[in-house]
Amino acid sequence: MQGVVKVNSALNMRSGPGSNYGVIGTLRNNDKVEIIKEVDGAYEIRFNGKVGYASKSYITIVN
Rank of each mutant, 00 (worst) to 15 (best):
K32S: 09
S19T: 12
V51M: 08
K56C: 08
A10L: 14
R14C: 14
Y58K: 08
S9F: 14
G3W: 03
N20G: 11
G16D: 06
A42E: 14
A10T: 15
N29P: 09
V4N: 03
N12V: 15
V39M: 09
Q2A: 10
V7A: 12
L11D: 02
G22H: 14
N29S: 07
I61F: 06
P17G: 03
N30P: 02
I61Q: 05
E38W: 04
S9Q: 12
N29K: 07
E38M: 06
L27W: 01
Y58P: 02
K56M: 10
G25L: 12
G18L: 05
R28F: 12
A10N: 10
E34A: 08
Y58T: 05
D40V: 07
R46P: 01
Q2G: 06
G25D: 13
G52A: 05
K32C: 13
M13S: 02
Y53F: 11
Q2L: 13
V33N: 00
R28D: 05
F47I: 06
R46Q: 08
N29G: 07
V39K: 07
V5K: 01
G52F: 03
S9L: 10
N8H: 13
Y58I: 04
I45V: 09
Y21S: 15
L27D: 00
A54R: 01
S55W: 12
I61W: 04
N29H: 09
N12C: 15
V7T: 15
G41D: 12
V23F: 04
E38H: 04
Y43T: 00
L11R: 06
Y53M: 02
V51N: 06
L27P: 01
I36E: 02
I59G: 00
E44L: 13
A54T: 09
N20R: 11
I45N: 00
G25E: 13
N30E: 08
K32E: 09
E44N: 07
N8K: 15
S55V: 10
G25M: 12
V33Y: 01
Y58N: 10
G52R: 00
K50F: 08
G41S: 09
M13T: 02
Y53E: 01
G41K: 06
G41F: 08
G49H: 06
P17C: 08
I59F: 06
Y21R: 05
G49N: 09
N48P: 01
N29I: 05
Y53N: 01
A42F: 15
G3M: 02
E34K: 06
Y43Q: 00
S9W: 11
G52D: 01
G18W: 04
G41E: 10
V51T: 11
K56W: 03
G18D: 10
N30F: 08
A54E: 01
G3A: 06
G18I: 02
E34V: 10
G3L: 02
G49Q: 05
I36W: 04
L27S: 00
N30H: 08
N12G: 10
D40L: 11
T60H: 14
N20Q: 13
F47H: 09
G52E: 01
E38Q: 06
V39F: 09
I24L: 06
I35R: 00
N63K: 11
G18V: 02
A54V: 15
V51E: 05
Q2T: 12
L27G: 01
G25H: 11
L11F: 07
S15A: 12
S55Y: 08
T60S: 12
E38G: 04
G49L: 04
K32A: 09
N12Y: 15
G41Q: 09
G16S: 08
M1G: 06
T26Q: 13
K50E: 08
N12P: 15
F47G: 02
N48S: 07
G22I: 14
G22N: 14
V7E: 03
V33F: 03
T60N: 10
N8E: 14
V5P: 01
G18H: 08
D40K: 10
R14M: 14
S55Q: 11
P17A: 06
A54P: 01
Y21N: 08
K37Q: 11
G25T: 11
N48G: 11
K32G: 05
A42W: 15
K37A: 13
K6M: 09
I45S: 00
V62H: 08
I45Q: 00
K56T: 10
I24V: 12
G49T: 05
D31N: 04
G22E: 15
E44K: 13
G18A: 07
S57W: 12
S55N: 14
R28L: 11
D40C: 14
V33M: 02
N30Q: 08
F47P: 00
M13F: 12
I59H: 00
T26R: 10
I36S: 03
N8C: 15
F47Y: 09
I36M: 09
N12D: 15
N12W: 12
I45R: 00
A10H: 15
V7S: 13
I61P: 09
G25V: 09
G22Q: 15
T60V: 14
F47V: 07
Q2D: 07
G16F: 03
A10C: 15
Q2M: 14
Y43K: 00
Y53G: 00
S57G: 11
I24K: 02
A10M: 13
G16E: 06
N29M: 08
I59R: 00
K56E: 03
I35W: 01
P17L: 08
Y21G: 09
K32V: 14
S15G: 08
K37P: 00
A42I: 09
G16R: 05
G49W: 03
G41W: 11
I35C: 03
